[in-house]
Design a protein around this nucleic acid. Structure first.
Length: 680
DNA sequence: AGCACGCCGACT
DNA sequence: GTCGGCGTGCTC
């Protein structure tokens, strides 16, 4: 009877593996292998874990060792390379390996009753049967696109490439052409298989990309991986990837941790997009992990963007990444929209709209063209106030205002979801004249309807699209020409091409200019370019004028707007990078953030103070613990401690030691560490 | 994190 | 007398 010790990781915050004994149930049972799932009893419950190593002996006293209950032989084991990726992520982000490796697996695989994998597998194994292929015209690439695709597909070894090109310059066709070459190469190659991972910020916003891929590669199995999949679907798609049947895997950030045994190319579309950063649990950057993965496998990776992140820009400048640029719009005769600033000090707005913008809207209405007004603030007004005594609608549970939602007759806190009826009079002095201050999308909608009673106005924001499917219906009605003026928050900034849209008005961008967050201007630029890109994507009409983007601002002289007008990200990004270098900010320094939260702010701060003093920290800049800008959310007070180090390995080594110390501190505060934080 | 044990307060 | 509050301790 053969015996051995299995080291198992589990989805628990405990930072260690657990030894279990294994005994063959009969002579025919194969030996367990690293990367296989096992069912076992852990404490008083039954869970599924993963084998990370095999051994003949264990340091754990024999009486504590339990036997594993069953090894799941049905599933081919996860590869050593995949485990190495998880191990890297676990070490880098200071999390237990089990918390990285297990939660990403389909729930069905981790369930206590094993799924009948044989039937699942058979269904997937029929090549080409999964989806119809509707033939499309393969777009003719322009020389720059063709060159870029050839360079990407022809690269050998680890070859990170920034594909830099404005909205509409045809980055997608470059990805697909490169993918086609690599897939074709795989057909003739020795191992006869290639997989391509394409990451996108949000799959629901890019349905046309999925359609394009399926149409472009008829007969190729395409798997999609994102949080919107039902469990059954998730299992099918994950397995198709794991078993190598899916050749193209299209997914959101979580797909970067998928098992892809034949991965030959990674594409990250809109690489600057903030949604590549997971903001809870394991706070990883899918972009950074993807680059690591490409390096590990010695394969090319493409990062595409019109407004690359400064990290990526920095790598492109230094030559670590190759920069390929697409200068022209791919659609023939399409031109970049003309961007203008409207000085709000000279042209005073009424109902939030300057006369210049009103005239531009009128012109579009006369021509039967569509307009988009971008206002990144939902609700009617961000706060209501009493003129008589100075009362304002503070949230009782958060350090924030209750937002007036007029159609819903409610005050709402956008941080804790507390809802109240709108008070009829001031709660402190009884004054019945409470004033809404500021303007959100609902108030803008109201004003526009009064101003243009004949126009069809549609508001698209998180409130107007709460019901499932209503967002799609709203976008459809815009595409079908049933809307003259579209009002939207950042929801409308991405993904959608509106063919008849020739005016974009940007209403309240200035707040980001003076934000304490040093990344705010980088993000604002990206967002403005993205919104501006909604206009004029189709070829300019015969005799028509180019699309226009009007930015209402109190700071028309600000260099950010000058750069947007010139469509000049190069200089803007380069000057931002210089500022970062002067100020010793990322990417010239590496950061980690220790957060703590508790019922009392004191508790959180005290923990952070202990944390700051519990260890020697030579070479590390340890800042003072401070309450977070939004200190209280849902009756919990939050504070944070920033640490910095000029060397990444230096920071990593410190964090490992520090975490061990932190775990010893007795506190009632809940705390977590974030490496490479983006929202500080 | 779960889950159990354990020791004090207000309910049928 | 018991239900349940959350402090503490453990999981191979």
């Amino acid at each position: 009877m053969k015996q051995s010790i299995l080291q198992i990781v589990l989805d628990t915050p405990l930072d260690s593996s657990f030894d279990y004994r294994w005994q063959a149930s009969d002579d025919n049972e194969p030996l367990p292998r690293v990367g296989q799932l096992v069912q076992l009893s852990f404490g008083r419950r039954e869970v599924v874990g993963m084998i990370v190593s095999l051994s003949d002996e264990s340091d754990v006293p024999a009486e504590k060792l339990k036997n594993v209950q069953a090894v799941r032989h049905q599933l081919p084991p996860l590869s050593a390379q995949w485990l190495a990726l998880c191990r890297f992520a676990a070490d880098y982000y200071q999390r237990p390996l089990g918390e990285v490796a297990l939660p990403g697996l389909p729930k069905n695989l981790r369930a206590l009753k094993p799924v009948a994998l044989d039937r699942a597998l058979k269904k997937l194994a029929q090549p080409g049967a999964v989806h119809d292929a509707t033939p499309i015209d393969v777009a003719q690439l322009n020389p720059a696109q063709q060159q870029a695709a050839d360079a990407i597909a022809g690269a050998t070894g680890f070859a990170p490439t920034l594909l830099y090109g404005v909205t509409g310059s045809g980055k997608t066709e470059v990805y697909l052409q490169a993918a086609a070459q690599i897939l074709a190469h795989g057909e003739n190659g020795a191992d006869n298989l290639s997989q391509i991972l394409i990451l996108v910020p949000e799959i629901n916003l890019t349905p046309q990309l999925e359609g394009n891929i399926r149409a472009r590669f008829p007969g190729v199995t395409v798997a999609t991986l994102h949080s919107g999949l039902a469990e059954g679907e998730r299992l099918r798609h994950w397995l198709a990837a794991h078993l190598g049947q899916a050749r193209i895997i299209l997914g959101t950030r979580l797909a970067v941790l998928a098992s892809l045994p034949h991965l030959k190319l990674i594409v990250i579309d809109e690489e600057h997009d903030p949604s590549y950063k997971q903001q809870e649990g394991l706070r990883y950057s899918a972009r950074d992990l993807a680059v690591w993965r490409a390096h590990q496998l010695s394969i090319p990776i493409v990062l595409g963007s019109a407004t690359p992140s400064l990290e990526t820009w920095h790598h492109a400048q230094s030559g670590r990444y190759k920069k390929l640029e697409l200068r022209e719009r791919a659609v023939k005769d399409a031109v970049l929209p003309k961007v203008r600033r409207i000085d709000m000090e000279r042209d005073k707005p009424s109902e939030g709209l300057t006369s210049s913008l009103v005239s531009a809207l009128k012109l579009r209405l006369e021509r039967g063209e569509q307009s988009l007004l971008f206002l990144n603030r939902r609700g009617y007004a961000p706060v209501i106030a009493c003129d008589a005594c100075g009362w304002v609608s503070n949230c009782t549970r958060c350090t924030s205002f209750m937002v007036l939602h007029k159609p819903e007759h409610r005050l709402r806190c956008h941080h804790c979801s507390l809802e109240l009826r709108i008070p009829k009079s001031c709660p402190t002095c009884g004054n019945i004249d409470l004033q809404p201050l500021g303007r959100g999308t609902q108030r803008l909608e109201e004003g526009l309807k009064a101003m243009f009673p004949e126009a069809r106005v549609l508001r698209i924001d998180a409130d107007s699209t709460r019901r499932k499917g209503s967002a799609q219906a709203a976008f459809d009605s815009v595409h079908n020409g049933e809307v003259d003026i579209l009002i939207g928050t950042q929801m409308v900034a991405k993904g959608h091409d509106f063919k008849n849209l020739t005016l974009v008005g940007i209403l309240n961008p200035d707040t980001a200019l003076f934000s304490h967050d040093y990344r705010a201007s980088e993000r604002l630029f990206a967002q403005l370019m993205q919104v501006a890109g909604r206009a004029g994507r189709a070829a300019q009409k015969e005799g028509g004028s180019p699309s226009e983007v009007l930015i209402q601002t109190r700071y028309p002289q600000h260099p950010l707007y000058a750069a947007v007008i010139a469509h000049d990200y190069d200089h803007f990004a380069t000057s931002l990078l210089e500022e970062r270098e002067q100020a010793c900010l990322p990417p010239y320094i590496y950061q980690a953030l220790l957060r703590a939260e508790a019922k009392e702010l004191e508790t959180a701060i005290e923990f952070l103070q202990q944390a700051a003093h519990c260890i020697e920290h030579e070479g590390i800049t340890m800042h003072d613990p401070i309450p977070m800008t939004m200190t209280r959310v849902a009756n919990v007070d939050r504070a944070q401690l920033l640490i910095e180090c000029p060397s990444r390995p230096g920071l990593q080594a410190f964090l490992t030691d520090w975490m061990a110390q932190l775990r010893q501190i007795k506190t009632r505060a809940k705390w977590s560490l974030e490496v490479d934080p983006v929202d500080i």
